[in-house]
């Protein structure tokens, strides 16, 4: 999946995360994490974000995760949705996304 636009998914509500994905051609993955859970779970959230991007085949992207106590499943879902929107992708590689 190639990121060509900026796109977001998610809300600022408790238990959710607002994820924004921007192009970062040739720059690899740049990840910024914000929110109340980052101090306690930063490593986990980072790992979850990176593995999601890998499963989607995204090599270059600038990603911001602004969470409010979101669990991993929510972060994965919001990131995949934002990436899909940013890539203009129609179908998802569901089998890769485990």
């Amino acid at each position: 999946m190639t990121i060509v636009n900026e796109a977001s998914a998610g809300t600022a509500e408790s238990g959710d995360a607002r994820v924004t994905v921007r192009p970062n051609a040739g720059g690899g993955i740049a990840l910024e994490l914000r929110g109340p859970s980052v101090a306690r779970y930063g490593d986990e959230i980072r790992a979850v974000a990176l593995s999601t991007l890998e499963a989607l085949g995204v090599a270059d992207a600038a990603v911001t995760v602004d969470e409010k106590g979101a669990l991993d499943a929510t972060i994965r879902a919001r990131l995949a949705a934002a990436a899909g929107r940013a890539a203009g992708a129609g179908d998802m590689p569901w089998e890769a996304m485990s």
Binding site: A9, T74, R76, A81, G84, R85, M92, W94, M97, S98
Partner: peptide, 15 residues
């Protein structure tokens, strides 16, 4: 619709 699809996919897979 797309975002909800992802949330439901992950809920089915992870919970």
């Amino acid at each position: 619709k797309d975002a909800a699809r992802h949330l439901v996919f992950r809920a089915l897979k992870d919970y």
